[in-house]
Write a protein that binds this DNA or RNA. Structure first.
Lengths: 196, 196
DNA sequence: AACGATACGGAACACTGTTCCGCTTATCAA
DNA sequence: TTGATAAGCGGAACAGTGTTCCGTATCGTT
């Protein structure tokens, strides 16, 4: 139920007709461009225009804007999720692994204009986006937190969900205001996790 | 330029005509009710309906939605601002004063459905809101931070603006998701401030 | 009472995301 | 090759925003 739209499990072929498959790719490319230029909240019509396609075509491939955004960033989110266990395995300290993983996540968010804002769950219409990010990343974050807590490096009792949301929230508006440095605030939050 | 709309410096009389003054008060009350019931992002039309007034009347008194929100919460923001120096004077530890002041601010934000979200500066149309809150609270926060830094209770080099924005961001969506406890995340952030 | 300034109501505008359906076109069987 | 058919497409139309505009009603004053 999380996301069934547009793309499919690894390697599948997509829509039957050739033109449809082509358009799906065109749409992903156009959306990526427009997101870079105007942020993820860019009007659907702009994306359609950029792709040289009608808005109806977008909605056939991606039932909602959130699905399109998920499709565009899916690979990066997956890569981030996979980096978690890898970091945990390669570092001496789970806390260090956690900190680096969060860094990576923040980098991702901050470089995508407006994405952090779109992740708010109460932001009607972006439920799917919220759901995919959380489904994918919360378990990883939880694993890192648990490992660090088991070693006694951090205070116990924090869940992946709240940390992810906290970090995500801190990244909102990180672009669009040079006086606010989200990375610094996130660093503070992570520092606060340390054992007292 | 920050905010000149609707209200005026302490004690002034408001619009000339009696009905206009009356409507302004009705509007403030109606807006307050609707904000409690439906959040600060409630449609302007809803507020107009609740007040028994046309939308044009709202815009005559409050040129933009942000101005209306500012007017509704002005007193509470001011009270919060004034609590800063008071706390600083009455506590032994500036850090303690800072922590309590932040608590108070968080309480305010969290109990106002959607207000934290509306505070985002990149949220087009809410510039006035953003500006008023920041103008009023950033200096107070900065003062508390400086006092704590001078005592060596926290790491130096943090400004009021970034802390206020960080705290504000952490409060986004605090209602509407019982799994996310904004107060807890803010506490983490403040804990992270402590000297290492 | 009459008049001018002020304020009101709500239709209209510009902009969203999303749905719908007549038309086009790719695909495949004959 | 040629229909027939289903899949896909475009963009007008719908529903919902915030905001503007202006004819009308009301207030306060002369």
């Amino acid at each position: 139920m999380v996301n069934d739209s547009g793309q499919q499990a690894a390697g599948a072929a997509g829509p039957k007709r050739k033109d449809a498959r082509r358009n799906q790719q065109i749409l992903l490319d156009a959306a990526a461009s427009v997101f870079v230029a105007s942020g993820v909240e860019a009007p659907v019509r702009d994306i359609a225009a950029r792709a040289g396609v009608g808005v109806g075509t977008i909605y056939r491939h991606f039932p909602t804007r959130a699905d399109l955004i998920v499709a565009v960033y899916r690979h990066q989110v997956d890569a981030c999720a996979e980096a978690g266990p890898a970091l945990l395995a390669s570092r001496e300290s789970p806390y260090e692994a956690l900190a680096q993983w969060i860094d990576r996540f923040v980098d991702f968010l901050v470089t995508k204009h407006g994405l952090a804002g779109a992740l708010q769950s109460d932001n009607a219409g972006f439920d799917g986006l919220h759901a995919y990010f959380l489904d994918r990343l919360v378990p990883v974050c939880g694993q890192l937190l648990d490992a660090a807590a088991d070693r006694g490096e951090i205070r116990p009792g924090f869940g992946g969900l709240e940390l992810m949301r906290g970090v995500g929230n801190l990244c909102i508006g990180a672009d669009s205001d040079p006086r606010y440095d989200a990375r610094r605030m996130v660093a503070l939050l992570i520092a606060g996790l340390r054992r007292t």
